[in-house]
Nucleic acid binder design. Structure first.
Lengths: 340, 340
DNA sequence: TGTTAGCACTCTAACCCTTTAAGTGCTAAT
DNA sequence: ATTAGCACTTAAAGGGTTAGAGTGCTAACA
């Protein structure tokens, strides 16, 4: 059911005011501060209707109205006015992103830092499992008699190095040959494809079998590492916000935020391909802390999901600022990651 | 001034009981639970004396006694009985340390994990600035036409890799020559020595000047990186303890724990070469959160400080368990780091 | 001289009661 | 459809009382 314009306006006012003041919004407030041409009684009946529709709640019978999870979602997708960042903020973003970022992980580290600083909320990012990512280049460097460094570069410009054991009687030429052999086999393939490959080690290549297994092992640890894929900054920022006044709420929040698994769980959930996605922890949705929101954006390239990044904080969050920051960071990410 | 045996015993009882129950300890408690042969009145006068000496405080006139920072320090160094870990705990330690640990940083990561799990407190470790550490091996690998990978190995087995730009018209032979040249110059030297070196680029080596500068740059970022040298686990563990019931205390705690700089500040302070060091945040010592303790051990090799590791938590901490865990981990670290 | 029983004193925490102020829902008039 | 008016609800703040725990002090005792 579509809301009347006036209902929309009133809902927007309630959300705006509540985000700003953290105080439940009363009919009197609205009529005096924002809608002088209408009496508080009228507002009252509208509020009552909005409550009926599930957009507003009351803490107790004689308190003002507070937005529901539904209201916040509608607010972000429909109601709120878009904010523009100041030049100072834009400059700050550029400055941070100028810092060295060899690989995608560092790029996301910068993103997370910027987002957390500018929004004052905890910021998280996740590079999705690289399983579908394709191998672009693989190179061995002999390091000791029996150790070689394997450098892996993938299509998504992810990069990882790993040490493998090699037979110490192998000559450098043989190592190069093995490198060439494995490159031919693996390059352009995804990890799952590589795992499924049936290699026929004919006589001339049989010496590479050990090395081959070691390389596949290295790839395995790399591709399946869920670890280290969550990047975060500003866990303590949560405490700056009046919404987390009691210890249990902080406890709940930190237990989610400090657990990589729980975070990955929420962050990698289907994102409906929306540009900006809002999830709200409430009685219906238990994965997030209660009364907490996760606002994320997803970065895709060639139709592939590359990463998700965003902020987690109180539901009563400055969505205008958050969305503005995420959009700007998204634009910068685009320019960086496409160039490379 | 030396305490009488009975005072020591009473002080130990107070600390033990308070750590266990979190309730201020009364004279009646002591005489009934621990010293049936003495009346509460006698205990009362002893407590009074211990308070006079600065070991005990009262929250208000009609409350029992609570240990002071001084009392905790004395408790750890003198009073407490040593605890032994269970076989299960010892096995757990061994299990974790079997995990792959290429470099000292990963070893410390394992240490921190074990400590946090077994003690249930936040655990931190810091690898001290590598400035005095000496270069053992340096090796270049050409990666692209104009990029080389530089692998640095130091005496303390620290290891780092870094990409540097090289002239694209350089042949592989020239790169190897440059590698040999720079190795001869740098190996066995500390970073400060390297920085002070005046290199005479005579004709035959003049082509290596750019590469030389790039390598020194790489070393610089490596050696001076204060970043990433703090390792931590279990920030949220603090919330499991009854001592952090109000939001301001949590705020204070997290603001220290989430700030690398603040942590480094306390962790790298002079440690008096004690095996186990206890620092307590109280009115006199502001670097730590109030009523919080930092218990650390230092690992040294060849007389050099290699790393500090320990736990941070409430002053009312289970020191027996913490010290036992730290000592055991210390022993394991020894065996691992010496072997390598 | 050290120890103990007895007792007055202090302080907190819990409980209850009252008052105040804010905000709502409903009704009847416009 | 809107509004003024009013009864009703509720949280929050303040005040007063009581119960209980623990101390410090004193005087008696071994």
């Amino acid at each position: 059911m579509e809301l009347s314009d006036r209902k929309k306006k009133i809902l927007q006012i309630v959300v705006d005011d509540y985000i700003d003041t953290a105080v439940p919004v009363s009919s009197k407030q609205i009529s005096e501060k924002y809608m002088q041409n209408v009496s508080s009684a009228t507002i009252r009946s509208e509020l009552s209707a909005l409550e009926e529709l599930g957009y507003l709640t009351q803490l107790h019978t004689s308190s003002g109205r507070v937005p529901s999870a539904e209201a916040y979602k509608l607010y972000v997708s429909d109601l709120m006015t878009k904010e523009h960042l100041s030049n100072k903020e834009l400059d700050y973003i550029k400055e941070i992103f100028l810092q060295k970022a060899d690989n995608i992980e560092n790029v996301f580290k910068n993103a997370v830092k910027v987002i957390s600083e500018l929004t004052d909320y905890t910021s998280v990012a996740v590079s999705p499992s690289a399983v579908g990512d394709k191998l672009k280049q693989i190179k061995f460097f002999r390091f000791k008699d029996d150790k070689a460094l394997v450098i892996i570069v993938t299509e998504l410009k992810l990069l990882k190095d790993n040490y493998i054991d090699i037979p110490s009687d192998m000559t450098n030429e043989q190592l190069d040959e093995a490198n060439a052999f494995i490159s031919r086999l693996f390059e352009g393939k995804s990890f799952t494809e590589i795992c499924e490959m049936e290699i026929d080690f004919n006589e001339s290549f049989s010496g590479y079998k050990t090395i081959f297994i070691n390389v596949v092992d290295a790839l395995k640890t790399y591709f399946t590492a869920r670890e280290d894929t969550v990047i975060m900054e500003g866990q303590d920022k949560i405490l700056r916000h009046a919404d987390y006044l009691d210890v249990d709420r902080i406890k709940e929040f930190l237990s989610v935020v400090t657990s990589k698994d729980k975070l990955l769980d929420v962050l990698t959930e289907d994102n409906k391909e929306l540009k900006i996605n809002v999830k709200i922890g409430s009685d219906g949705y238990e994965k997030l802390p209660k009364e907490s929101s996760l606002v994320t954006a997803t970065y895709t390239a060639n139709g592939k999901k590359i990463g998700t990044y965003g902020v987690i904080g109180p539901s009563r969050m400055d969505y205008q600022k958050v969305v503005a920051v995420l959009e700007n960071v998204g634009r910068i990410l685009e320019s960086i990651l496409v160039d490379k």
